[in-house]
Computed example of a mutant assay.
Amino acid sequence: MKIRPEVLEQLEASTPSTEAVQKRVREYLAVAQLTIDDFARRVGRGHSGVKIFLSGKYITSTGSSSDVRIRRALVEFMDAHPIEISTQTNGKLYETSNVRVMREWFDRCRDGREMAVIYGPPGSQKTFVFSHLIAEHNRRELSKNGHGSRAYYVYCSQNITPRELLKKMAKAAAIPATQSIAGIINALSHHLASRKSIFVLDEAQHLGIPTLEIVRELNDCAPRCGVLLAGSHSLMRLFHERAAELEQWNARLSNAIELPGIAAPEATAIVEAELGVQPAEKLKMLLDHSRVTDGFSRKKQQYLSAHRIFRQIKKIKAHPLFIAPNTTQKESAA
């Protein structure tokens, strides 16, 4: 269908240039690790047309007077389905024993397509650490020209439904999520088929049994993806109290790891790296203010909250008389 000149002029004025769209599509394919065929199918265009467009021969090959229609379709799709693969982090990650445990199981679930649970009290920095691990992993894998593995972070909000969770997972993987539950699962499976992948589902204590069963299906069915559930003690209480209903889940869990608080020597090393060596009395006061009673565990024991430690550090650094420590000081926790 021929475009009227006045309409063509309006489209040209509101659509990026051919070169700009070609560049954006190539970047989109690289980050999302999609083939041209996969991308074209999602946009709803023929793969040969997209391929010819990217080669710069669309007008001469198709006999069209303009390539604005395909440009417009590609731009509208990318605007509607932005890529949210995490590669950026904020703050420094100290290699505490908790971090090493989370890193070990992050790698294991990704490479072995396993499922595991990591749970702990508020302040054990599950969100902060997994955000770092995911960004660190994706930065490394993005350079592998579409052959690298992928890690995705998904926050599980209160009372999230199976469909809402799948839509969040699809969005994280840059997959259109307008289909039925079965359609989204099929789209995710197709997308994950060519690479090892892991989904970290944070605040997983908010997941109900129907939603957990949808997650299990993604791990059960080929190509399978790794799943790491991160949450509070309420998450493990759900697995214990509803064991009969979660029999299939419990049979597939590789492990359930409880995170303790930061050890005192680790906390001391972090404080010294951030503030410099502190007088014993001042250090004791800072750590005492960072202790929290874990009301959710059976033992009701106290632990050092990483969140509180860094809040105390931030408060001290904000003081006008604070002097930064020598940059050559030890920068990592033992």
Rank of each mutant, 00 (worst) to 15 (best):
residue 92 K to Q: 08
residue 37 D to M: 13
residue 63 G to S: 01
residue 125 Q to E: 10
residue 48 S to N: 09
residue 118 I to D: 05
residue 99 V to Q: 05
residue 86 S to R: 15
residue 54 L to E: 06
residue 110 R to C: 10
residue 49 G to K: 01
residue 106 F to P: 09
residue 47 H to R: 08
residue 47 H to N: 04
residue 76 E to G: 07
residue 105 W to M: 09
residue 61 S to F: 03
residue 31 V to T: 15
residue 33 Q to K: 15
residue 106 F to T: 09
residue 99 V to A: 08
residue 118 I to S: 04
residue 88 Q to A: 15
residue 52 I to C: 00
residue 128 F to V: 06
residue 104 E to R: 14
residue 81 H to F: 12
residue 108 R to E: 13
residue 108 R to A: 12
residue 53 F to Q: 01
residue 72 R to E: 12
residue 105 W to D: 11
residue 80 A to D: 14
residue 84 E to P: 03
residue 101 V to Q: 05
residue 95 E to L: 12
residue 62 T to R: 06
residue 67 D to T: 03
residue 43 V to S: 06
residue 119 Y to L: 04
residue 107 D to R: 12
residue 41 R to F: 09
residue 108 R to G: 05
residue 109 C to M: 11
residue 49 G to T: 03
residue 58 Y to G: 00
residue 119 Y to F: 15
residue 106 F to G: 09
residue 108 R to H: 13
residue 63 G to C: 05
residue 72 R to G: 02
residue 57 K to S: 03
residue 39 F to Y: 14
residue 78 M to F: 13
residue 95 E to Y: 05
residue 59 I to V: 13
residue 90 N to K: 13
residue 111 D to M: 11
residue 56 G to S: 04
residue 66 S to L: 01
residue 112 G to N: 12
residue 40 A to F: 12
residue 127 T to Q: 05
residue 41 R to Q: 14
residue 47 H to F: 03
residue 59 I to A: 01
residue 128 F to W: 07
residue 33 Q to V: 11
residue 66 S to P: 02
residue 68 V to E: 03
residue 88 Q to P: 11
residue 103 R to C: 02
